[in-house]
Amino acid sequence: MATSKVSPPPPPSPPRSSSSPSESKQQEQNPEMATPTASDISSVLDSPANKAQEAHHIAFFQSIPWCSSLLSSTRNLIISQPVSRVIRPSGCEEDALISQALNSPDAIPAYITFYPPPPKPTDYVYEVKSLIALGPKVNGWEGICHGGIVMTLLDEVMGQIFAVNKDSGAMGNKMPLLTGYLNTAFKRPVRTGTKEKPAIVLIVARLTKLEGRKHFCEGVVYGDEEGKDELARAEALFVQLRESKL
Rank of each mutant, 00 (worst) to 15 (best):
E196P: 01
E230K: 13
V6E: 06
N76V: 01
P198D: 02
I79C: 04
N173V: 11
C145M: 02
I108Q: 02
H56K: 11
Q81H: 02
Q62F: 09
V6C: 06
A49Q: 14
L131N: 03
S104I: 10
T184R: 03
K214F: 03
G180I: 14
T3Q: 09
T37F: 13
T192M: 13
D167R: 12
L97E: 15
S4G: 09
M33E: 14
A110I: 06
V150L: 00
E23M: 05
V221M: 04
P121A: 10
E196W: 02
V83Y: 09
A170G: 07
P89E: 07
P48I: 02
E230L: 08
P136Q: 12
P189K: 05
A34C: 11
V128H: 06
K174A: 11
T35H: 12
H56V: 06
E54A: 12
R233D: 10
Q62T: 14
T184N: 07
V125Q: 10
T37A: 11
R88N: 07
C145I: 01
P121R: 06
S130Q: 06
M33V: 08
I78F: 05
G212H: 06
T152Q: 04
S72P: 05
S24N: 10
A38T: 09
G140Y: 00
T74G: 03
M175F: 14
P119M: 08
T194Y: 03
E230T: 13
T208N: 04
S17W: 08
Y181W: 15
